[in-house]
């Protein structure tokens, strides 16, 4: 790890002033929250910020609901959110996506602001040696012809097939969430979560629309009543503490057996948090059935492209979507208050 300056300012304004953008992605100073991605990458020399701005003293806390709108501070930890009644009861998909991610220790420090920006686990990005357009623009992509079992099948480009590794964003994206940010000169702004991440295309080094000095301060979203009927299905190699091979966040608005509205987010298969809007459209007015679920899955993966080791994610992803639809449809939403997250 290279030496860096450490600072822990006590206001958002001071933090965005202090962070030292360099104008080149990955070269400038970095915001530090839980540290579970940043410090990991700094230890690998993949991230080499000259300075680190710890936001621990900023009061970006709390989960509140007012006028039907939920506001979540960026420094709320994954653990805190996973067990919060608003997440647990009103939108279980959010709680599920959190407690099924990482480990309890990591969730105790990782924040929702940082989690959304979790970096890829692509081994060619992390090894700091291989050609990687994301880490070293223009150097090529070793993953496309390499060990790519865990990499993406949706939203890929000839430059990059790195999977977006997070879970929570794939669920949060269901609720048309707004991301609140703050910059030094420009002050606050709002970004639709769906617009936050950008596809790799020719510039995989750019992962979001955020400026270098732009700090996520919180999220705002509205939870329809039917968000109670929501699940996060995560297929993985082991029972816990593993990245998704494919995951699906699904919320259903049901009228009896008929789907009034469906929302589907995908994880583990795409280069960015992925909203499967065509599949959602298809499900409108359909009756819940095995065939409907699988058809929705097929539509969701219509544009998918498999590579040498990850083509299995396409049929897997379809089936995961189908299971998530069933699980959501079968979910008992009569009296969910008071349940706790995880392994019940």
């Amino acid at each position: 790890m290279k030496p860096f300056r450490y600072q822990a300012p006590s206001s958002v304004d001071a933090a965005v002033e202090a962070v030292e953008p360099m104008g080149v992605p990955g070269q400038g100073g970095a915001f530090l929250a839980g540290g579970t991605t940043l410090i990991d990458l700094m230890k690998l020399s993949v991230a080499t910020p000259p300075s680190v701005t710890d936001i621990k003293n900023l009061s970006l806390d709390g989960i509140e609901e007012a006028d039907g709108e939920v506001r979540v501070g960026a420094r709320v930890t994954m653990a805190e959110a996973a067990s919060h009644p608003i997440f647990l009861d009103r939108a279980p998909v959010l709680s599920d996506a959190l407690w099924k991610a990482a480990s309890p220790q990591l969730r105790n420090v990782a924040t929702l602001g940082g989690n959304i920006l979790q970096r890829t686990r692509c081994p060619y990005f992390r090894d700091n040696v291989s050609p990687c357009n994301k880490r070293d623009p223009g150097s090529g992509c070793a993953a496309i012809g390499g060990i790519n079992r865990l990499l993406a099948v949706l939203g890929t480009s000839e430059s990059c097939i790195a999977t977006y590794a997070g879970d929570f964003a794939n669920a949060l994206i269901l609720f048309d969430t707004t991301v609140e940010t703050h910059r030094a000169a420009e002050g606050p702004r709002q970004i639709e979560l769906e617009d936050l991440h950008v596809l790799p295309e020719d510039h995989p080094e750019r992962e979001t629309v955020l400026a270098d000095d732009e700090l996520i301060t919180g999220y705002r979203f509205r939870l329809p009543d039917w968000a109670r009927r929501s699940v996060y299905v995560k297929a993985r190699d082991r029972e816990s503490y593993a990245f998704a091979l494919a995951s699906a966040a699904v919320a259903l608005d049901l009228d009896g057996e008929t789907i009034r509205e469906a929302r589907i987010g995908l994880g583990g298969v795409a280069t960015v948090p992925w909203r499967a809007r065509e599949a959602e459209d298809f499900l409108k007015g359909k009756t819940v059935s095995e065939e409907t679920g699988l058809q929705a899955g097929r539509i969701a993966f219509e544009s998918a492209q498999g590579y040498e080791h990850n083509a299995f994610k396409i049929p897997l992803g379809r089936q995961v979507v189908a299971k998530a639809i069933f699980d959501a449809a079968r979910k008992d939403v009569s009296g969910s208050a008071g349940q706790s997250e995880g392994a019940n």
Binding site: R121, P123, D237, R238, E239, S240, Y241, A242, A343
Partner: peptide, 16 residues
């Protein structure tokens, strides 16, 4: 070895 860590070289965890 492209999974030279114990996040991606998987060994059973308690839940397994």
């Amino acid at each position: 070895y492209m999974n030279d860590n114990i996040s991606e070289y998987l060994v059973p965890v308690n839940a397994d």
